[in-house]
């Protein structure tokens, strides 16, 4: 396998890195983790992952993904597939907690700029949003995050969360309506 990104001008696609890893080149896996770990952490933090467990959840998501690479046929983006696995992990965590969703604001999530008033306002908005997300049904919360935080389209969200694009759109608008009421 040709070496991942570092030795190429054009970065290899996720599919090529998956192929490389399946062929025994661990650099493929390393590059996939480097590409997607931070994004995954953002999603997990917003979707109810315990702040102290985010790294473990990210790790576990990748471990499950690499174990089941045969299951990823490339119809969906590798990142969508990771979100799907992460969503299942959160579901398991949610069950273990007895149905409670914990959403905790991390120190710098509220940071806006050097203006203390703006920072305070941003912090309050983040706190309210997290509180609001905690009250949403899991599917609404995850659809909202995949759309608003990750910028995914409804097709990709539907594939990730095993639903339809139409249903994903409905979930998103329900979530927005509810969050607007809570943050008004």
């Amino acid at each position: 396998m040709p070496a991942p990104a570092a030795e190429h001008t054009a970065p290899l696609t996720d599919a090529a890195l998956v192929l490389a890893y399946r062929g025994g080149d661990e650099r493929g896996a390393t590059e996939l983790v480097t590409r997607h770990a931070a994004v995954l952490a953002r999603f997990l933090a917003g979707a109810g992952g315990d702040p102290g467990d985010i790294d473990d959840l990210v790790q576990e998501t990748f471990i499950r993904a690499f174990r089941a690479l045969e299951g990823w046929r490339g119809e969906s983006a590798f990142r969508s597939w990771l979100f799907s696995i992460a969503s299942n992990l959160l579901k398991d965590q949610f069950r273990r907690r007895g149905g409670r969703t914990m959403l905790t604001l991390m120190d710098d999530d509220h940071h806006a700029d050097d203006d203390p008033a703006a920072t305070l306002e941003a912090r309050e908005a983040a706190r309210q949003l997290l509180a609001g997300l905690g009250t949403l049904p899991r599917l609404q919360r995850e659809v909202f995050l995949l759309r608003a935080q990750q910028g995914m389209d409804y097709e990709a969200i539907a594939t990730t969360l095993d639903t339809t694009p139409g249903a994903a759109r409905v979930h998103y608008h329900h979530a927005v309506k509810r969050l607007k009421e809570l943050m008004a």
Partner: peptide
């Protein structure tokens, strides 16, 4: 606000 959510978790990862 949602776009900024989880930024710290991403930074710490």
């Amino acid at each position: 606000v949602a776009r900024r959510l989880g930024a710290e978790a991403a930074r710490r990862t």
